[in-house]
Design a protein around this nucleic acid. Structure first.
Length: 923
RNA sequence: GGUCGAAUGGUGGAAUGGUAGACACGAAGGACUUAAAAUCCUUUGGCCAUUGCGGCUGUGUGGGUUCGAGUCCCACUUCGACUACCA
């Protein structure tokens, strides 16, 4: 029998399906293990060979854990809402649901061919009503809760209302949009609308007027993580700032916990660091600056309280509320002109335009420590959304303030000894303070760090300001002016928002005629006939953003068909949270923050039992494309081979990598590829046409997309799986290069040849030789350690070595080969299963037991090698790590081989490095 | 600008501080074959020596720690990823 991958893989995939081999149930008798992939957005282009990388890695781990006796939950589903389907719908009129369903079917068929061990009975799609019911439910719960900053958890809004009725706003500990002051009587006097507006200030899901990233081209608002460098991540369209009334989630309330709990998860340092930066904790002080000849006091935030004596001006964000309060009559026109100019600039234009701009308000403030008067400016380099939207400018020690000061010719006062500020600011927080003495506070001579502390203490005592921790993390904007997303379970009664009851969920997405905004500029849902409650109250027209459906999906897999709860306490109590999460780093500041927030919120409500959703995170690298080029001689249809192109004037042209093999072009296929190449001529080297290559993004336009289906067709899923792992470390980005896949394919054939010669099964029950046992036990040890460390590439190498060794030893022992198959089963499940049955096993290899290595087969002589060192002969002996130094020295002197080596020479020195090695230097 | 990471043959990549280049691809030579494919064997970092079985050199650059550094420390160069007017 020959190795026929198609036959084998099809047969076992069917077997697993028929026998529901991968169906998972709660089993209190076994420990659980939850392995999860970031579920894909089913795009129209289908999977390319880069997508399954992470899926294969997690599949190996899931299969491995199962072989080690764990009850493994390994589900898959689809992040089905999203912009591309909607854009496609706008262009073609096709319902996004239709295209989404088609795309999912395509994904599924591609995934199925690779042989994953998913429990497909647990599949979820975010656009299924049975799923988004719970997305809507979570939103309602967020609406009904506020964040208590003293208890550090979400609490029901009802208890807040109780407090208001007794004491008004006095003594509340609630995360809020702004600080409100009202008495119990004032609260009671409010009408329904006023009460609603007041509570919005505290709700975790709230309606607020916020500065949003508005993308005119997409006609929708985008979250911060959906915008990069001033353009939309999807589509790359310009994004501008706009004040809009939107649903928001008070993610910022969770900032301290999101930051602190990073310490408790096993994620890579780099992704934790990315989240820390995104959350952006900074310790500083809020300080009051009085405006001259006015009652207005402006609050600013600074992390450099020590530099207050160097403040030579102040700057307000153009959107700051203070601007209108303080601008003098004669400056009003200039300020208005500046603000209008800024408003019409997109975020991108603001960023590209690094020119300093701003305008004087005509007003002065008073430095609270020095008493000096300083001018107040408006400039767009101060952001409305961070801190208080107002700053004290210290040009000597902040580069942005410095640029502004130079442009407007404002004074620069250095505050640190020896700082040269003639060319640029001195931003470092080090040195001794100078020029920092006021009527009540003298910082001169202090170290910067001490000065910061001293100033903070002083301003707090004097009531000029207070110590404040600021976070960069903003609340998430939760409204999208789109069709293809979860509808909000919200209706408006006389303009006041109300939530649906759980009994009325899910609120289904309505049908509409076109997927465009209405004539009056309302979101697409404005087109839906009868989009109102039975009583006639209008429903919310926005839909939820992409991250809504993906924030709690890992919980739903635990109990996907439960119609009464997101997840039952039993299912959640058993599966708890994700033990291993595999996915790309691109979600560091989006999905991975939102999910953690969402989970913490549900944790506060007692709905889930773990504080963090993902224990361990592995970020697989991106697979880039490897493009091939042919070189056409200018103005001809002649192509010159790569190494001969010198001396010709050539144009490199991308050529489809699928008609190139080992960088050698298939000439006939090339002529057939496109009509204009039908009569192409070639200048060959050694009878071959060799193509050039480059690493680029994998995309259709570069003709470097490799479809996993083609690889599976030609080499089989097992080869694809092994080869993807063999390419290199899982976390590293690397180009896909089909060159080399033959080596892995050869390995499987060699493995096959250990079992079969022709149709004869070679396997016997003879006792394996010591060498064979050593080889297999070495492999067991290596593969076990590698899987635990995700070093799958070296595992594949280890398999190759072992199979080569067993082949050379002519070992066909059932005992050894059975172990080999179990080890290989996570990597190449089909061929392992096939051979597992061939050697007389029943059931499925998925239920086999992971073998254990025995050190006795691995013993090495502890004497190594003579080497030279600095010209002096030397002898090294390896010793066990825990051997005491004295014994090591004794061993070295008694060692037979060492003695032989030392014989006749003078022992100059015996160097004992405890636990490591002994060097006997002779000479 | 900030943060993190990387740099090893023609290529992908191995090396708990202990014989650098495992394994694989590619290449060269050979066996089998009428021939090709497939398969198998040998060689393969560089330089020198190859009827002397060996010698020298070598992990981006320069320093340091160490008996010993690809690995640890410092500085630099280059590349990549993420992020960015966050006061």
């Amino acid at each position: 029998m020959e190795y026929r991958h198609k036959d084998i893989e099809q047969r076992w995939q069917q077997f697993w399906k028929d026998n529901k081999t991968y169906k998972t149930e709660i089993d209190n008798g076994r420990p659980k293990f939850y392995v999860l992939d970031m579920f894909p957005y089913p795009s129209g282009a289908g999977l390319h060979v880069g997508h399954p990388l992470g899926y294969i890695a997690s599949d190996i781990f899931a299969r491995y854990k199962r072989l080690r006796g764990f009850n493994v939950l390994h589900p898959m589903g689809y992040d089905a809402y999203g912009l591309p389907a909607e854009q496609y719908a706008i262009q073609t009129g096709q319902h996004p649901e239709v295209t989404t369903r088609e795309n999912i079917a395509r994904y599924r068929s591609q995934l199925d061919r690779i042989g994953f061990c998913y429990d497909w009975d647990r599949e979820i799609r975010t656009c299924d009503p049975g799923y988004y019911k719970w997305t809507q439910w979570a939103f309602i719960e967020m609406f009904n809760h506020y964040y208590d900053t003293a208890l550090n958890k979400a609490m029901p809004v009802a208890s807040l209302v109780g407090h208001f009725e007794e004491k008004g706003s006095d003594g509340i500990n609630a995360a809020a949009t702004k600080t409100l002051h009202f008495t119990a009587d004032q609260w009671k006097a409010m009408d329904e609308k006023q009460k609603s507006d007041t509570l919005m200030n505290y709700r975790i899901a709230y309606l607020g007027n916020t500065m949003v990233n508005w993308c005119p081209k997409l006609g929708t608002v985008l979250a911060n993580d959906e915008v990069s460098e001033g353009v939309s991540v999807r589509g790359g369209y310009p994004v501008e700032q706009k004040l809009m009334y939107q649903w928001c989630l008070r993610v910022s309330a969770y900032a301290p916990r999101l930051l602190d709990d990073l310490d408790s998860v096993a994620w890579s340092d780099s992704i934790k660091e990315t989240q820390r930066n995104w959350i952006g904790r900074s310790e500083g002080a809020e300080m009051q600056f009085k405006v001259k000849d006015s009652d207005v006091e402006m609050t600013i935030f600074t992390t450099r309280a020590d530099t207050v004596f160097g403040v030579t001006f102040m700057v307000l964000a153009p959107e700051s509320k203070y601007v209108d309060m303080i601008t003098t009559a004669d400056m009003r026109d200039a300020v208005k002109a500046y603000r209008d100019e800024i408003k019409h600039k997109t975020e991108r234009e603001r960023m590209i335009d690094k020119k300093v701009s701003g305008v004087f308000t005509g007003t002065y403030a008073v430095n609270p420590l020095s008493g000096k008067e300083i001018p107040i400016y408006v400039s767009d380099y101060v952001l409305a959304g961070y801190g208080t939207g107002a700053i004290m400018a210290v040009p000597a020690h902040d580069s942005r303030d410095y640029a502004f000061a130079r442009h407007f010719n404002l004074p620069v006062i250095p505050l640190i000894e020896g700082a040269d500020v003639s060319e640029q600011s001195f931003d470092a927080k080090e040195g001794k303070m100078i020029n920092s003495c006021g009527p009540e506070l003298d910082l001169n001579g202090m170290d910067v760090k001490d000065a910061i502390a001293a100033t903070k203490k002083f301003i707090e005592e004097k009531g000029i300001g207070k110590i404040k921790v600021n976070y960069r993390l903003r609340d998430a904007i939760f409204s999208r002016q789109r069709y293809w997303g979860e509808p909000f379970p919200v209706y408006y009664k006389d303009g006041v928002p109300h939530m649906f009851g759980l009994d009325n969920l899910p609120l289904h997405l309505p049908e509409i005629d076109k997927y465009l905004p209405t004539e009056s500029g309302e979101p697409p849902l404005g087109r839906a006939e009868g989009w109102k409650t039975q009583e006639g109250w209008p429903l919310e027209l926005n839909t939820m953003p992409g991250f809504a459906g993906s924030s709690a999906y890992y919980l739903r897999y635990m109990d996907p068909h439960n119609d009464n709860e997101l997840v039952s306490a039993e299912a959640n109590g058993y599966w708890r949270n994700v033990d291993l999460y595999v996915g790309g780093t691109e979600h560091a500041t989006g999905h991975l923050i939102y999910s953690r927030f969402w989970n913490k919120f549900l944790y506060d409500l007692g709905k889930v039992c773990e504080n963090e959703p993902f224990r361990k995170l592995v970020n697989q690298g991106m697979i880039q494309g490897r493009s091939n080029f042919v070189y056409r001689i200018k103005d001809t249809n002649t192509f010159v081979s790569f190494n001969l192109k010198k001396g010709y004037d050539v144009t490199p042209i991308h050529v489809d990598v699928n008609i190139v093999s080992n960088d050698q072009l298939d000439l006939d296929a090339f002529r057939k590829w496109r009509p204009e190449y039908a009569d192409a001529e070639f200048i060959l080297e050694d009878g071959k046409y060799i193509c050039g290559w480059a690493v680029e993004k994998m995309s259709k336009s570069m003709f470097n997309v490799v479809n996993p289906d083609d690889i599976v067709e030609r080499y089989g899923a097992d080869t694809l799986r092994l080869y993807e792992m063999f390419l290199g470390p899982i976390e590293q980005s690397k180009p896909w290069d089909t060159n080399g896949i033959d080596g892995v394919n050869r390995f499987i054939k060699k493995l096959w040849n250990l079992f079969y010669k022709g149709d004869t099964l070679l396997v016997n029950d003879e006792k394996p030789s010591d060498e064979a046992l050593k080889s297999i036990h070495k492999l067991i040890k290596k593969v076990t350690a590698d899987i635990e460390n995700f070093s799958y590439n070296t595992s594949v190498s280890a398999f190759m070595i072992c199979v080569n060794e067993l082949g050379a030893l002519k070992c066909h022992s059932r005992e050894v080969l059975a172990d080999l198959l179990v080890l290989l089963a996570p990597f190449a499940p089909h061929v392992s299963e096939e051979l597992w049955h061939a050697i007389g096993n029943g059931g499925t290899i998925c239920d086999a037991q992971w073998p254990q290595w025995d050190e006795k087969y691995l013993k090495e002589a502890n004497v190594n090698y003579p080497v030279s060192f600095n010209g002096k002969p030397r002898f090294n002996i390896s010793v066990p790590a825990d051997m005491p130094a004295q014994e090591v020295q004794k061993l070295a002197l008694e060692n037979e081989a060492a003695a032989k080596w030392i014989e006749g020479k003078t022992v100059r020195k015996v160097i004992v490095v405890p636990g490591k090695i002994v060097n006997v230097v002779v000479g």
